[in-house]
Design a binder for these strands. Structure first.
Lengths: 241, 241
DNA sequence: ACGCCCCGATTTGTATACATTTCGGTGTAT
DNA sequence: ATACACCGAAATGTATACAAATCGGGGCGT
């Protein structure tokens, strides 16, 4: 009610709860008690229930056996699998887009975005801005999805991406600069261009393979970051292992 | 409350609502009014809301903009896409199973099941029992999923299969016998065996390709059934087009 | 020691009254 | 004719009292 956003109590409660979950307070398996949460969030049980329902739809909570909700547990391999699954679904989205043929204006928009991404990490000599890169990268992946003619595939992909650690920009390096990091950006960007090219050329299979391989970069970054225990990535907070 | 099952009012309400939706009463886009439903289902608004939440989790309802719920609309191409997506996810499940190596006892169980399926449609001279086949086919696809080591992939696959028209046995022929129908069963069963064999032999790519192609049979059956306007398939009821 | 039943505290489920928001129609002014 | 503001009906949002189910522990019998 203080700083959280949303027009109704239920939405605010959902927002607050979501924050607490992804920050790692309330680790996987934690049971959520309506009365306790209602007090903490300063609302009645009704909007709390509503909020928990919404988070269950998002996949952050599970319904417990005897009623009520439990924070969903994610292990390290769930994290790997979610990234893999995102790759598979993005691949399918691109393949279907390629097979059906993509609209020219959307492909053009992607072209401009690709140039902006180039600029963001200093491909043309400008100083790199990694926060900007992360945002543009996320935009790119959103645009890619919209190429896909299938509502069903799009919505399932959005669903998987809503998991905080499966989002395309989850493990992009943002702070320290290193040679390996810049190289991974160059590779990722080459894949971006190839993916758009493949869709434009109706090379469905190529587009699909590229998207899968592209997701592997997230996995690599994750593994690099996992070693960096000094500065744990916030997206890793809800991994219980 | 009369004949529907479930221990709580909310579960019964969810069951009743689900039935009404998949039967095609309340076509896609229909808005659900809490008070009206509460009267029809003889419960208060609270369990109705709870029921609608659950159906939204299943993907049968969507939250409307100004609050409330709307029956999700499915078009003919959504149906095609859902089957395609099931093929993609089953393919991924099998590929991961093949890459990780599947437990022998599970493969054995699949072997026995395959023989039962043979018997069900009269491969050994016995009279075909298509109801039985549909059930065993469904069991087979459930067992297949369980080979997959990834919880995430399994749960997303289960989610897609929960759509009534994306389930593996949705469009299996059950009533009239025809040469084409028996042939499709033979082909499907050959694919079943090949899928298990591929997983056992750790041929991930082959397993994936087979699962995708296998899903195409459902699509073929669907197209055959779509022509049969005299006896529309119940799974088609919630397609609005 | 083990299982079982019973009980009470805790927690969720339900109904309902009331608050708030939303939506559609109607009127007026431009 | 269009845009806008207003209003009232109808819908959802919220709080809360009460009902029912669940979980855990203690006692008892075997």
């Amino acid at each position: 009610m203080t700083e959280s956003r949303g027009s109704t109590h239920a939405k605010r409660a959902a927002y607050d709860l979501r924050q607490r979950i992804v920050k790692g307070e309330m680790p996987g398996g934690t049971r959520l008690y309506e009365v306790a949460l209602a007090e903490e969030l300063q609302v009645s049980r009704t909007p709390v229930r509503e909020a928990m329902s919404r988070l269950a739809e998002e996949g952050l909570l599970e319904r417990a056996k005897g009623g009520g909700f439990v924070v969903r547990s994610f292990t390290h391999s769930d994290l790997i699998d979610a990234i893999e699954l995102r790759g598979v679904l993005e691949g399918t989205a691109l393949r279907l887009a390629a097979e059906a043929g993509a609209a020219d204006d959307k492909l053009e928009a992607l072209g401009t975005l690709l140039c902006e991404i180039d600029a963001s990490f200093g491909a043309d000599g400008a100083p790199p801005n990694l926060e900007l890169y992360a945002g543009l990268n996320s935009d790119f992946h959103d645009l890619i999805v919209r190429l896909c003619p299938s509502t069903i595939v799009r919505s399932e992909l959005e669903r998987v991406k809503s998991l905080p650690f499966a989002s395309p920009s989850a493990f992009v390096f943002r702070n320290r600069e290193s040679k390996a990091m810049m190289e991974s950006l160059v590779i990722a960007q080459a894949q971006h261009r190839a993916m758009v090219e493949a869709v434009a050329g109706r090379e469905g299979s190529r587009a699909e393979a590229l998207a899968r391989e592209h997701a592997r970069i997230a996995r690599q970054n994750l593994e690099k970051k996992a070693l960096d225990t000094a500065e744990p990535d916030p997206a890793l907070a809800l991994i219980v292992d």
